[in-house]
Design a protein around this nucleic acid. Structure first.
Length: 195
DNA sequence: AAGGCGATTGCCT
DNA sequence: GGCAATCGCCTTT
């Protein structure tokens, strides 16, 4: 069994520095019954002095996990349907996090397909969005405020072949910041469908 | 106490 | 590509 790393040291850096370093790591969720996992391929950074961030406004009970120590899990519910998963970065009190926007599935693929009602033979639409991957993995606000190393894990994965940065998706403020990071990974063998 | 809206998704044209 | 769905949170009366 691979050794688990509760909180990689780079998460103590600010979100926009840590975010690209999170690409390629394997995200693993164990809800006590099932395990699902995938390589992180798309992330976005959010910080306290960032008008697009939940932490730009004073802390509330919902956003409190963003202000906790690096490695804290922050999950929020939005649009009446979707859960979005973040990994908190930086020192305690700073209000920073990395939004996980996409993963490349590696483990528990059939379970993820069932949860997503996704019967296609390739996985293009399975986990390529922040709400999609939480639905596929069964992640909800129940783990918001917990820490890495309990149910959610970050394990060594792949070194990205290439990383690009772009403006973030779906925001209206600070649209000029290039804080979305996308990785090109070698396709995993189980996922090697080539479109 | 009430209304507006969102770090999205999927369906429809 | 445009837009409805859907509800908890936050802001404003």
């Amino acid at each position: 069994m691979k050794r688990l790393t509760p909180t990689p040291s780079f998460l103590s850096e600010s979100a926009e520095i840590a975010a690209p370093q999170l690409l390629g790591w394997q995200l693993l969720y164990d809800d006590g019954i099932t395990r699902t996992a995938g390589y992180i391929t798309e992330v976005e950074a959010y910080t306290m002095d960032d008008p697009a961030s939940h932490s730009y406004r004073p802390m509330t009970s919902r956003t409190a996990p963003m202000f906790a120590e690096a490695g804290t899990v922050y999950v929020y519910f939005t649009y009446g349907k979707h859960y979005c998963l973040n990994i908190v970065t930086g020192p305690r009190g700073r209000g920073e996090a990395i939004l996980i926007r996409a993963i490349q599935p590696t483990l528990g693929i059939e379970i993820m397909q069932q949860r997503r009602q996704h019967s296609n033979t390739n996985y293009r639409e399975l986990t390529n969005g922040p709400g999609k991957l939480t639905q596929a993995m069964g992640i909800t606000t129940s783990i918001s405020g917990s820490g890495l190393g309990k149910q959610l894990f970050i394990t060594a994965g792949q070194i990205p072949d290439k990383i690009t940065s772009t403006p973030r998706i779906g925001i209206r403020r600070a649209v000029d910041r290039q804080w979305r990071f996308v990785a090109i990974l070698a396709p995993s063998s189980a996922n090697n469908v080539n479109t």
